Simulated assay, not measured.
Amino acid sequence: MSVNSLDDLFVAGLKEAYYTENQLLDALEELSSGTSDEEISNAFSEHREETEQHVQRLEDVFDEIGESPEEKEDNAVKGLIQDHEEFTSQDPDQQILDRFNVAAGQKSEHYEIALYGNLTPMAQDLGLDDVADTLEETLREEQEALEELSQMGEQFDEQAETTDLA
């Protein structure tokens, strides 16, 4: 696909977002089952359900702009997933794996925030106000997920400090 206009750039971005969300469905299931901390596992499960809604919203956006839902492979997402696979293949201690999983979740949320943070104003510039509202709703949910994961990461850091002090 040749990108020669804002419309082309927007559609390409939607395809990357669609790929990202679909890849993260599987990754979030793996993170949930691979995490021993129940609170973290539940957070990943809940975000997976939210991600299913994100996929549906993107399909609705494609429909609204007259495009068929299509994925465009994204090397950043592939890299995040590959990093996780490489780390888990080293058979780390479970607590270290839990902390790594939280960090991996944070990385993916930052990436998704960047995606939706760029797509939303593009939709506005293209006069697609309803689409922009839909994308902004997803952006807010991604920001909330990042905040939740950041709080969990801080709990790990606090536990490490008390362990080091003991």
Rank of each mutant, 00 (worst) to 15 (best):
Q124H: 11
A114C: 07
Q53E: 15
E137P: 00
P121G: 06
D93A: 11
Q124S: 15
Q94Y: 07
E112H: 02
E70I: 08
D60G: 04
E85Q: 13
Y116G: 01
Y111V: 08
Q124K: 15
L135M: 03
F87T: 06
D63N: 09
E136C: 04
G127S: 03
I113L: 09
A103I: 09
D91W: 04
Q94D: 13
P121K: 05
G127E: 06
Q53C: 05
G66S: 06
D133A: 05
L97D: 08
E64Q: 10
P69S: 03
A132S: 13
L119I: 10
V131F: 00
N75M: 12
T88K: 14
G79T: 14
E109Y: 09
E64W: 02
A104F: 13
D60C: 01
D93W: 09
E59M: 02
K78G: 04
E109G: 07
I65R: 01
S68R: 13
D98H: 07
E85R: 10
L58I: 03
L126C: 09
L80H: 15
A132Y: 02
D129P: 00
K107L: 15
A104Q: 14
E136G: 13
S89E: 15
Y116T: 01
D98F: 04
N75I: 14
P92R: 08
I81F: 07
Q106S: 08
A114I: 12
H54Y: 05
K78A: 14
I113K: 04
I65C: 02
E64L: 07
K107T: 14
D91V: 04
I96F: 12
E70T: 14
A103Q: 13
I65N: 02
Q53G: 12
S89T: 12
R57M: 07
I96P: 02
V131L: 02
F87P: 11
M122H: 04
L97P: 02
V77N: 07
A103E: 12
Q82C: 08
L97C: 05
A123I: 03
E137C: 00
F100Q: 05
E59I: 00
E136W: 10
F100V: 05
E59L: 01
V77F: 07
L126S: 08
M122L: 11
V55C: 06
D133I: 00
F100A: 08
Q56L: 09
E64I: 00
G105N: 10
E73G: 06
A104I: 04
A114N: 09
E85A: 13
E67T: 01
E64Y: 00
N101K: 06
A104C: 11
P69Y: 00
Q82F: 14
D74K: 06
P69A: 04
D98Q: 04
I113A: 08
L135G: 00
M122I: 01
V77C: 06
F62S: 04
P92L: 07
A114Q: 10
A76F: 12
A132R: 03
V55A: 05
D83A: 14
D91M: 09
D83R: 15
A104Y: 12
F100P: 01
L126F: 06
D129N: 10
T120C: 03
E67M: 09
G117P: 08
P69L: 03
F100G: 00
V131G: 00
L58Y: 01
F62L: 03
Q53T: 14
A132N: 05
L115K: 08
A132C: 06
